[in-house]
């Protein structure tokens, strides 16, 4: 079923056309990655999808209902930012519970939901710590749990791993995929890392200069690149990484 549908979306900021005529749909339970260089409009698109910004033209439909002008908290979506944006004065549990306690329908079960979320992101041992006492990866888990607690059916990630080291990234990658499976959520995931996009996604949306260049499965993007840009930015880049990996494997003595 069609979960989200974006039609003819455009947005200018300070007279710059940041997004031009964006059209796409996402299926329920899909993992869609938006891949593109810095400044191509990824964050702006995400902010419009969740309602932190409003488009100049175009419409957004969720489950068949228009939500273009809906306030963010009524859209049933959640967002996870690159820099976590945790409540530094609150403990892990309080971070996750805070929004629940401010929510009329979830207030009474706030503690049990929060504990469920803590278990889901495997932070049980750390519930009474402040964010500053956690590693970057753990902080990002708190942010994810806080977002999931309200039960959104679409979760947006804006380069959630950009500030993390390689090891943590690999681990969190698996975790996010596992959580998605457990919850059956639809995910839109921003990255500028080609490898990450190919490893995680059902489909990839390659963007440049505020436009969608190609939107397809990883296989199709590799086998049928839409143009020279995809060839250069996506495929060449991946090949280079693979080459250097192969070289590394061949030159490292095995003992």
């Amino acid at each position: 079923m069609e979960k989200l549908c974006v039609i003819n979306l455009s947005k200018s900021l300070s007279k710059n056309a940041v997004l031009q005529n964006i059209n796409f749909t996402i299926e329920e339970g899909e993992f869609l990655t938006i891949l593109g260089p810095s400044g191509c409009g990824k964050t702006t698109l995400l902010r419009i999808l969740i309602g932190l910004d409003f488009p100049d033209t175009g419409q957004i439909f969720k489950d068949g209902t228009e939500i273009t002008n809906e306030v963010p908290s009524n859209r049933g979506m959640g967002i996870v930012f690159q820099n976590y944006a945790l409540f530094e004065n609150m403990t892990v549990l309080e971070n996750i519970e805070y929004a629940l306690r401010r929510n009329k329908t979830l207030r009474n079960s706030s503690r049990s939901i929060a504990m469920e979320m803590v278990a889901l992101v495997k932070l049980d041992e750390h519930i009474n710590k402040k964010p500053s006492a956690l590693s970057g990866g753990q902080q990002q888990r708190v942010a994810i749990a806080r977002t999931l607690a309200l039960g959104p059916d679409i979760i947006l990630f804006d380069e959630p791993m950009a500030a993390l080291d390689a090891d943590t990234r690999m681990m969190l990658r698996t975790e996010i995929k596992r959580i998605q499976k457990e919850l059956g959520a639809t995910i839109i995931y921003i990255t500028h890392d080609q490898e990450e996009a190919f490893a995680m996604s059902d489909r990839i949306m390659v963007m440049n200069d505020g436009k969608i260049i190609q939107l397809d499965t990883p296989e199709n993007i590799v086998t049928h690149p839409a143009n020279e840009y995809i060839q250069q930015f996506v495929i060449k880049n991946l090949e280079m990484k693979i080459d250097s990996l192969i070289k590394y494997v061949n030159t490292t003595p095995h003992n």
């Binding site: 959640g78 967002i79 944006a85 805070y98």
Partner: peptide
Amino acid sequence: NMNLESVGMTLGISRWHIIKDILLPL
């Protein structure tokens, strides 16, 4: 963190509560 208010809006927490419960205590 400059995204606090955005996070608040998506979680249904008003600006006033972000001020009262997070900005001011910090």
